[in-house]
């Protein structure tokens, strides 16, 4: 019981350290993505580290999921902002406005989906371990 608790605490501390590093990288990437996207990535990192890292499962797997999540977030935002830029050039400024209005919601599509996949991965590995 005590050992289990220690592992949870260690995972959370290490997770937060990893989260801080990732947050710095995102801040450096401000030139690549817009400020809303960077804010969303930070929210994702904060929630992921504080709520997924205390769960059972290998620490390496959690770190890998956190990093994959950030890469997906960055790619997602880069692709959508490029798409909106091109679409705005061809079809008018209205599409750009529409993109900015919908951007936070579009971000949450990947955040929630990736969250679900991450929990599936952790839960399935837990089941295998139990079996």
């Amino acid at each position: 019981m005590l050992k289990e608790k220690m592992v949870r605490i260690r995972h959370s501390i290490l997770g937060f350290s990893a989260g801080v590093i990732v947050a710095y990288i995102i801040i450096l990437c401000f030139y690549l993505v817009n400020s809303e996207a960077a804010f969303m990535l930070m929210v994702f990192d904060f929630l992921f580290v504080s709520l997924v890292f205390p769960l059972d499962g290998s620490f390496v797997k959690k770190i890998a999921l956190l990093l994959i999540g950030n890469v997906i977030g960055l790619l997602w935002n880069s692709v959508f902002s490029s798409f909106s830029y091109v679409a705005a050039c061809y079809f008018g400024e209205f599409l750009n406005v529409l993109y900015i209005i919908l951007n936070p919601l579009l971000n949450f599509v990947w955040v929630v989906s990736f969250w679900s996949i991450s929990l599936s991965v952790l839960a399935s590995s837990k089941t295998v371990k139990v079996n």
């Binding site: 817009n34 400020s35 809303e36 804010f39 969303m40 929210v43 936070p104 919601l105 971000n107 949450f108």
Partner: peptide, 11 residues
């Protein structure tokens, strides 16, 4: 921008 991003989180 920041507050706008909070709307979908709330959603």
């Amino acid at each position: 921008n920041i507050f706008w991003a909070l709307i979908p989180i709330s959603l």
